[in-house]
Design a protein around this nucleic acid. Sequence first.
DNA 1: GCTCTTCACTGACCGCAGTCAGTACAGTTA
DNA 2: TAACTGTACTGACTGCGGTCAGTGAAGAGC
Lengths: 211, 211
Amino acid sequence: MQISYCGDNGDSQSTMRKLFDSAAVLFSKYEFDDVTVDAIVESAGVAKGTFYLYFKSKDALIAAFLLDYVSRLDAEYKRHLDSQPRGASASDLLLSLTEKIADMVTGAIGYNRMKTAYKVMLAHDVNMDTITGYNRFLYEISADVIRRGIENGELQSSLSPDVLARHYVTAIRGICYEWCIRYPDFDLKEHALTHVRIMLNGICAKPGSSL
Amino acid sequence: MQISYCGDNGDSQSTMRKLFDSAAVLFSKYEFDDVTVDAIVESAGVAKGTFYLYFKSKDALIAAFLLDYVSRLDAEYKRHLDSQPRGASASDLLLSLTEKIADMVTGAIGYNRMKTAYKVMLAHDVNMDTITGYNRFLYEISADVIRRGIENGELQSSLSPDVLARHYVTAIRGICYEWCIRYPDFDLKEHALTHVRIMLNGICAKPGSSL
DNA sequence: GCTCTTCACTGACCGCAGTCAGTACAGTTA
DNA sequence: TAACTGTACTGACTGCGGTCAGTGAAGAGC
């Protein structure tokens, strides 16, 4: 896993790694909020000032941690899609992807990490491009599904697959945000599936299909 | 305007008002982040501890400030809908409402207030029910539009108007969130209108309509 | 008169994120 | 050898959100 911000000459690289790895250990044990920068630097055996040579802020470190996480997530989403039956329709694929995302969010990722991620993205002084940038792998794989659906006539829209994929991801992100602010009184998977069905019916060539 | 948390016997009420009003003045001049609790209590002429008798946290005060704001916003949305021509279709009303919301968000409310609102909602230890609760007026007025659309056969869905309204508001909130994290590189109004069109086509009885 | 309780209010204090003037030391030049 | 430069690192310090033991005044009961 590659971390940004590093001048990579010997020691400085390893200091950064020490900080990142110490933080990763602490993050796996405690909530982000409960892990102090003091604890991280103590565990890494460096002074507090050193931390800020390598990370612009605590949020920046959290962002680096999350970016790493997200790229592995997207790889898993891709694997999930690839494991679907050959003849699956684009709608089914998109719904299956949605279900998979909901499962990951409510399961492996969990409320606290999601909440922190959404907070950090709002901070806006931290580079979260791997998560928010349109070159994120998730945009690519959902655009692929949509493109194939359009090519075989199953889906139809005046909008490009890329634009539709952006609307899909925006919707999913919005629903995950809603899950965070309503937690635990919100069924993420059910809401996400219903929303995607509403959207799909809007771009389906054959209307009147089940909702 | 009614603020929560108040024991309302004489002096205590006025101390709360002093705090709230001092904060409101400062919030109108500076960003939320730049207004310190120390500045608020100094301006209100009370000690810091007193602040925490009336507000659970700085976020709670901001929430109270925003709640007030939102109820006035929703009233304006209602007025906007009422001012639309008599024969306007449900789709047109929903699109017009969407446009109005986008205008308010990018205009009167602005990036910083939106960002803070979305951050505070994530905090989850602050009561934002007036904004997130399903009894928020915005849910009611959008459900009304959808209900009338269903009743006159323009819209069709196995889902209830209330559920559809929740999906509508969730979508709008999600797109506003997206606007915040991409600010300023995101056309809120255009994205919101397109998304609502996608959703509408999904619940329109007459398919094949323009997208 | 006197204690006891209640309650609005106080401000010194704490924890934590983030800062910055300063140190130590390994080259580099003269 | 001496003076200079760049750089990895340091830790005391600041600012701010939030806490809590304590104060003073206004009743309640005797």
